[in-house]
Structures are given as structure tokens and as C-alpha cells.
């Protein structure tokens, strides 16, 4: 498709969920490069292009879990949306939490959307496919983050 995000950053500590997400995205034959980060601290390093991530390119789309080790997803979201350069990057919250306080926090801090991970495999795959169809195939991103 015409305007796929070049780089998709998946911040997910659960290896099974990360694998399922990548597999579902790849089944849709997307061309985006998927980078996986397993905790909030490294996600912030990546987004600041610091340390091991100094030579990375900023992502066009972030899929962000909330419950993460070290620094949680809420803090990562807050950092992204308060940074003049990063705030343009759409953040899809992808989490097992359906707590209203987490949903409210996310929207109040400018998450672009909030997806509760379904518990069973079939619905999980459907949700990821839906993310793919909307965020990879439909959405247009700003150039040169």
C-alpha cells in the first residue's frame, strides 16, 4: 500500500504476545520494519536515540503495552506526547488492561487509540488484523519524524 509506516515500534514485555503480534502483522504481508522492545526503559532510550539505539531511526507508529517492567507504558506515552518531535507519532495502546482509569489516562495523555488485547487466540489475531488494516493500510503519516 501507498503509505505504510516504514518503522513500527512494538513495546511489549510478553514474548508470546509479541510473537503473535508480529506473526499476525507479517501474515498481512506488510513491508514495515518491526522493532521489538521489551521494557519501558529501553523504549525511552530508543525514542531518545540514546545508548545502543543511537543509530536507530524514529518509528512512524508505536504499539505500546501499559504494564511493562522498569518504566511502564503510561510513562512512555507521557514522554512521547510531551516531546515536540515525538508527539506526532501515533501511539496505539495495546494492553490486557480494560480498567477505565487506564483508558482515561491514555486518552488524557493523547494516546491515538486504545485496544484491549482479547484473551483468546482467534480474537487476538482479529484485533491485530484490524490494527493492520487501519493503521498500516488506511492512515497517512507525517513525513520525516
Amino acid at each position: 500500500m501507498k503509505n505504510e509506516p516504514r518503522i513500527l515500534l512494538l513495546v511489549e514485555d510478553n514474548e508470546g504476545d509479541a510473537e503473535l503480534t508480529i506473526e499476525a502483522l507479517k501474515n498481512n504481508d506488510i513491508r514495515s520494519e518491526i522493532k521489538v522492545i521489551k521494557n519501558g526503559e529501553e523504549a525511552l532510550q530508543f525514542l531518545k536515540l540514546e545508548g545502543d539505539y543511537a543509530h536507530e531511526t524514529l518509528p512512524d507508529l508505536i504499539l505500546l503495552d501499559i504494564n511493562l517492567p522498569k518504566i511502564d507504558g503510561k510513562e512512555v506515552l507521557h514522554f512521547v506526547k510531551n516531546d515536540e518531535v515525538l508527539k506526532k507519532i501515533p501511539v496505539v495502546i495495546l494492553t490486557t488492561s480494560s480498567l477505565q482509569k487506564d483508558i482515561a489516562y491514555s486518552y488524557n495523555n493523547h494516546a491515538n487509540c486504545y485496544i484491549v488485547k482479547p484473551g483468546n487466540l482467534k480474537d487476538f489475531t482479529t484485533a491485530i488484523n484490524s490494527i493492520e488494516r487501519f493503521w498500516i493500510q488506511c492512515v497517512t503519516y507525517p513525513k520525516n519524524n
Binding site: N112, C113, Y114, I131
Partner: peptide, 30 residues
Amino acid sequence: SYVVKPVEFDEFQKAISDLGLYWMIVNQQP
């Protein structure tokens, strides 16, 4: 999100259908 309307009819239909299902069914709003 920002969606450019596809010019071609079938693509327009598909984009709206994907967009509608995403925001009405999959997404959780506050």
C-alpha cells in the same frame, strides 16, 4: 488519525469499512 480519502471507489469503500470497524468495534473509547 489522519486518513486520505482514496480516489478509487473500491478503495474508498474498503478504507471506510476498515475505519468504521476499527473505531466502532475494536477501539475502546473513554
